Amino acid sequence: MVDPLVFVIVACEVGFWVVLGSGLLARYALNMRRLGAALLVCTPVVDVVLLVATVFDLRSGGEATTAHGLAAVYLGVSVAFGHSMLRWADQRVAHRFAGGPPPVKPPRKGPERVRHEWREWGKFAIAWAIACGVMLLLMHVVGTPERTQALWGQMSGMTLVGGIWLLGWPVYHSVVEAVAAGRRSARR
């Protein structure tokens, strides 16, 4: 049987994109800038709904499952990456439907690429901190360590992902740029 919280998580994800799409539609297609802005500002409400549902589920005697950890991860990622996701969507819709400038693309190489990779990983670090903080809060709410073991696994998994991301992107691009800078310096 599927955990009911999984349905709440899916509904919140769908709700996020519906609110985002409605905000962009109001802003660009209907030329209702204030309504569009108000809808876009409401996207965090989806996160609050998910957090309340998660706490309610655990307070009613449920055992913490992977779904509860996933809800915390979703919340962390939404808070840390939400603004850049909104900006990403807004740039594309503005360009496509409102004659806006082309979307900004990430730099391909050089120090700008290194800064970009560290900034994106920094967002992950914020998401990790929020998700782990929420999971620790959920552990406190439950109060019984035996009922929260799955959350420790979620924190470990997210930490592993962060380590792989750190080495595979920011550190890798920093090393590549340092080698390239050394070669440029040697040629002078």
Rank of each mutant, 00 (worst) to 15 (best):
R184Y: 08
V176N: 14
G157L: 01
V179Y: 11
S174W: 03
L160A: 14
E177R: 01
V175S: 03
G163N: 01
G157R: 00
W169C: 07
H173C: 03
L166G: 07
G153I: 00
R183Y: 12
A180I: 09
A181F: 04
H173E: 12
Y172M: 14
W165F: 14
I164H: 04
S156F: 12
Q154D: 08
M158S: 07
G182I: 03
V176L: 15
A181C: 02
V176D: 15
R187D: 13
V161P: 06
S174N: 02
S185Q: 11
E177G: 09
H173G: 04
V171Q: 05
S185G: 07
W169M: 09
L151Q: 06
Q154T: 11
L167W: 03
G182F: 04
V179P: 09
S185E: 14
L166T: 09
G182Y: 06
R187E: 13
S156D: 09
Y172A: 12
V161K: 01
V175A: 04
A178G: 04
G163T: 01
V175E: 01
R184W: 06
S156W: 12
V175L: 02
V175Y: 06
L151I: 03
W169G: 08
A186P: 12
G153H: 01
E177Q: 15
R187I: 08
G162D: 03
A180W: 10
M155L: 09
W152K: 08
V176H: 14
V176Y: 11
Y172V: 07
R184V: 09
L167V: 13
V171K: 01
V179E: 12
G182M: 02
S185D: 15
A186V: 07
M158L: 15
G182E: 08
G153N: 01
G162K: 00
A181Q: 04
A186R: 10
W165G: 05
A181P: 05
R183K: 15
S174H: 05
W169A: 09
W169F: 10
A181H: 07
L167S: 04
S185K: 09
Y172Q: 14
G182P: 15
M155T: 10
H173W: 14
H173K: 08
I164M: 07
R184Q: 10
G163Q: 01
W169I: 06
L166A: 10
A180D: 15
G168C: 05
G157E: 03
L167F: 04
Q154A: 13
Q154Y: 08
R187T: 13
H173I: 00
G182V: 02
R184I: 08
G168V: 03
A181T: 13
